[in-house]
């Protein structure tokens, strides 16, 4: 029964090795998808290239369904799996600031590492900026501490909040994603920018 490492108490060293291998796969998948290009990422918000939407949702759905089936086959202990903690205000405010960072900087942390790996100088600068942003947060932590810790409501799952089975929620997400893919591909035709696509 999974997750293998915590359940079987496998050594920390092996866990770190697995982290590295998973990272290899993560980086490879991101780069192959084209997430190493900021103009491809930004295309999402102008409609000329919706790769971000396609990759992001397909990945989330694949993992979501995989977990549901693993759980059904009793191959994974869902109690051990990390579910993100939800602090209402900080999740929203943090998300809004990240969204601004995305459109201004053109990357998110994961994609910037991947882009820096193939030599994108703008990505390296983005990483430098991120480190400064984190230092700024660390140095001024006392200003945000209240907001950071406000309204903690545990690690709720959306399926429980909406009182749905996990599978039903997954089906809803899939249907929504298919509709978004369809609309997005229409947008790609409508806002087509061959000049940019050729360059990236």
């Amino acid at each position: 029964m999974g997750p293998i490492i915590p359940v079987f108490g496998i050594s920390e060293e092996l866990n770190l090795l697995i982290a590295f291998i998973i990272g290899l796969g993560f980086g490879f998948a991101l780069e192959q998808a084209g997430f190493s290009s900021s103009r491809k990422l930004a295309g999402m918000f102008y409609g000329y290239d919706i790769t971000v939407l396609k990759v992001f949702f397909t990945a989330a759905i694949t993992a979501m369904l995989g977990l549901i089936f693993l759980n059904y086959l009793e191959m994974i202990d869902m109690g051990i799996i990390y579910v993100n903690q939800y602090y209402i205000q900080s999740a929203i405010v943090g998300g809004v600031i990240m969204g601004a960072g995305f459109i201004v900087g053109g990357f998110c942390p994961g994609t910037s590492v991947c882009a820096a790996a193939i030599g994108k100088i703008d990505a390296m600068v983005f990483i430098g900026g991120s480190l400064l942003g984190i230092i700024f947060f660390g140095e001024t932590y006392s200003w945000w501490e209240e907001l950071y810790n406000k309204n903690f409501i545990g690690s709720p799952k959306l399926s429980n909040t909406l009182n749905l089975k996990d599978g039903v929620l997954a089906l809803l997400v899939v249907v929504m994603a298919v509709i978004m893919f369809w609309l997005g591909e229409k947008a790609e035709k409508r806002f087509n920018r061959d000049d940019i696509i050729k360059e990236i």
């Binding site: 549901i68 059904y72 869902m78 599978g167 039903v168 997954a170 089906l171």
Partner: peptide
């Protein structure tokens, strides 16, 4: 996902 929606939900948690 339709199959996932139909399957009964199990709770594996310890």
């Amino acid at each position: 996902s339709a199959i996932a929606a139909i399957l009964p939900q199990k709770k594996n948690s310890s």
